[in-house]
Design a protein around this nucleic acid. Structure first.
Lengths: 230, 230, 230, 230
DNA sequence: AATGAATGAGTATTCATTCAT
DNA sequence: CATGAATGAATACTCATTCAT
């Protein structure tokens, strides 16, 4: 075997994953071709199918690699707070900080591609591709359930459906905050990127303000009715 | 000449626009082929290029058709409030309601495809495709400037940069609220779509809560310092 | 009828012919589309088919318009010399000057598009398109026959086949001289276009030198044999 | 696996090149489609793009394959004469024979497609396609420079610009002689193709006659003036 | 364990032409 | 007399995937 054709070594998989992650972020899934991926990874065209089986499987692997870690950290942060609380309900701010703080931490990690991944993830929530969304749902199912339960305990007076909606709104605000600096530039050309670490307190203030906002009147009314009925 | 081959009439353009709008929403821009569009519109394959010049130009036209109307309504709503206020600064809730209320109104209009378009729009803010984002920026430039100025007047004590960020967060929350019912289902499989008209008060409460949330401490501190210096 | 849609006037045909001529020269027949022609002529897309029937018919018309004039002038020049000669055989230089002088004169006429046409013509002799070549053959048949006969009389000692070949070589040299200034630049980047009127004496010297060159030995031999046999 | 679907073997590239060469000659570059090429080569439609990248790159490769060889032979023939001459200037006839003899030799080689290629080459000098001509210029640059220098030495009394023009005229005559038997038939329907080997002495006589023709008077005059000034 | 070659189905776009008005 | 709209067939090219080696 000549030097020129020497094998890539065991990092071929990782090279592909990294190239795919960054290209998916820049161009989207559809517009990223296998040739682009293998080209940037400096790997044979057939290597993706060899190592991952298909392009779809590669997409899943790109997410699984990071998402497993991300959700493990989220659960860890939540459990740390719970053990501190000694069984008492957590303050909403702690729960929100546990969930979104981990996101922002990874988004700030430009060293290991965490920022790239988080922006990709933010964009992917609205991805029309059915199988990608299906996969995300499975990966998120457990962790979301745990956080929702914590919020239900923390805010016993707020209807659960209302909490669900507000969590949804929070996800949206966070995703834009991470994925859409570009979008922000759309609205304000003179906008300054500045220090990304200052994003955290800004976003937390906004999220908590929204979460604790007074309920809309009609919701309050319908609750009163239900209470009367009880 | 049979009915099947009868000429399309003057609505060929509109048929294409409608088909494209709904297909873009379902599959995204890249995954929607010209064949799909012309097939659904029951129009010759070459008709898109004849009427619009290219797929990209068609995409722009899909947006321009609705966006022009949408932003006109937003400005109209803002100006209506301003003339009521007789020169006094508007209440933030009025400004937010003017901007996002128009969005939600169109999103509720399932009759004329408004819902389809708003979900498409929400997804497009995070679209990687450079030219699409560039086009959106141009369409939004004026209206965003007007609303930001109104918010600056309404909240003179809040740093302008802070208002910009919170407007960004609000856009994210709104986009998800509209585009991402699917995303919501991801997090809660048992979630009920229910009456979309109830979205408006829910979202408004959240947005105003976020907008009026206490500033993060570090921002308060830095403002205090600046005030002392003055 | 509004001003905007007012008819082009009777020069629509001429506008198309001029646009086609110049575009054919620049891009070739195949690479010149109907849209390019009607676009440059500022004429409706369907006008070509309306006025000429088809693209092929337009090509023919482009040539016929100029070729008729060109060959009429050639015959005129030849006949002028013949009437001066009072029945005596013409000098070869007069015949060559009559034929190629008219070509060069038109090639020098940049005012009325003659230069454009002659360069197009030069390129077309080697055009693979069968119907174009067929058409050229028909247009040229008579005039070539007349000039060949004049040369046969002028050079009674040269085998007719040899004269035919040399006429062919002369056509090639002339075509390149006209069509291929670009080709010349290929070989000498620093080449100076300079005064096109100086091309005439240069080319005439070369052509006559070639026409009057000693016969190749084998031809002389075979002629001697034939003469012996006679 | 049946014979019909058996893989092509390592000659797929060569099959494509041969098919392209002959089709380009017959129909021109534009009128030759990828389908025609891959059809005649009995190769998959995508094979051209796989092996060559694009149609343009294929065109270049068709030329490079032959032109490299052709120009190598030309330089070889020139250097052989130069080494025989022992430093003395070469006779013009030797130089012309070296350059055009190689052309005619390849044009006579019907066995290996040389004739096809030379006719294609002759037509291509007048090809409007810019990139093709650019490519030809690069391939020819060195060899033309060498031959021009040899001619400058061989004809020290002839102005260099005049030599350049006459070389250009010679190229034209040669190209027509090779490419344009069809063109010749245009002018003389009863023309007999006969033995192509007899073309060589005919063309050489003509070319040398043209090269050594007396300078046009005006050139002589301007030279005399320049000499007087010296 | 990895790859160069190949492929069938797909892409957006352009073409000359037709036709009802 | 002229044209806007439309069309079927073609264009070069790209795609993810397969497979023999």
């Amino acid at each position: 075997m000549s030097e020129a054709t020497a094998k890539q070594g065991p990092d071929t998989r990782a090279r592909i994953l990294n190239a795919a992650e960054s290209l998916f972020m820049t161009h989207g899934f559809e517009a990223t071709s296998m040739r682009m991926i293998t080209g940037q990874a400096e790997v044979n065209l057939a290597a993706v199918n060899y190592h991952f089986g298909s392009k779809d499987a590669l997409i899943q692997e790109v997410f699984r690699r990071r998402l497993t870690e991300l959700n493990r950290d989220r659960l860890g942060a939540l459990e740390a707070e719970e053990s501190l609380a000694n069984g008492a309900p957590l303050k909403p701010s702690k729960i929100v900080a546990a969930f979104f703080g981990v996101s922002l931490k990874m988004a700030a990690d430009t060293e290991h591609g965490g920022a790239t991944f988080m922006r990709l993830l933010g964009r992917t929530y609205t991805e029309p591709n059915e199988f990608v969304r299906q996969f995300l749902a499975e990966e998120y199912a457990e962790v979301v359930q745990r956080f929702m339960n914590a919020l239900y305990r923390a805010l016993p007076d707020v209807p659960r459906e209302e909490i669900l909606w507000r969590f949804h709104f929070m996800m949206g605000a966070m995703s834009y905050a991470i994925a859409g600096t570009d979008a922000l530039k759309l609205f304000a050309g003179d906008f300054d990127d500045e220090d990304p670490t200052r994003l955290m307190p800004r976003l937390m203030s906004f999220l908590l303000g929204g979460l604790r906002a007074p309920l809309p009147e009609e919701v309050i009314e319908s609750r009163a009715i239900r209470r009367d009925a009880a």
